[in-house]
Design a protein around this nucleic acid. Structure first.
Lengths: 94, 94
DNA sequence: CTATTAGTTCTAATGTTATAAAACAATCGA
DNA sequence: TCGATTGTTTTATAACATTAGAACTAATAG
């Protein structure tokens, strides 16, 4: 992995973290200490489901979250490894 | 300072860090271990002076850099305190 | 003063992002 | 199967970001 590639990966992660709603999603997951569904988070943050789905995709794309399907629902959780790799200590500061 | 205000400050900082050229500027300053001028950095990164000036403003606005005028030149340096407050360990990882 | 150097701001072009409604797809319970 | 639930994709729109050239400002050397 070249320096340039790592920089690009970094900027992608920062881009994803630079939206207030995505930061809120991360905080909600962080404090819930459990996986949550789109619906739950959308309702909690008062965002339309299509917008929540869009943000979930962004988070997943850079590896900040994991998803797990169960029945009709999709469960989201934080991917601690990515946070630790790129932003050690960040989650604790949230 | 409310949680919401801190979140907004955080997203602003992430927004500034989510551009590849600004990340490059930070790396150059980090490794130079000294202040540098617009011209120096622009030449090193092959970016027009107006664009460099624009990025410098972004960095300064969120407190990631300091500036010092001396004669015709303007010297830029990293503001370590901001990095330590919001992204402890980040500079070392660069 | 005038010219030079260094940086900023204005402008216009181009591209990217966030949003929600609508249509769509997948899953499951009755 | 049918309808309800849950989430995704498409579409349109509005706002914002990045870029460099041109015009501008500030400081200084001669």
């Amino acid at each position: 992995m070249t320096l340039e590639q790592t920089d690009l990966q970094r900027t992608e992660i920062f881009k994803v973290l630079s939206d207030i709603n995505r930061l809120r999603i991360i905080r909600v997951l962080r404090h819930a200490q459990r996986e949550m569904t789109c619906g739950e988070i959308g309702e909690k943050l008062n965002i339309s489901k299509s917008t929540v789905s869009y943000h979930f995709k962004m988070l997943r794309n850079v590896g900040l979250t994991n998803t797990r399907r169960e029945s009709q629902s999709k469960y989201l959780s934080l991917n601690y490894q990515t946070f630790n790799n790129f932003l050690p200590g960040f989650l604790d500061s949230l």
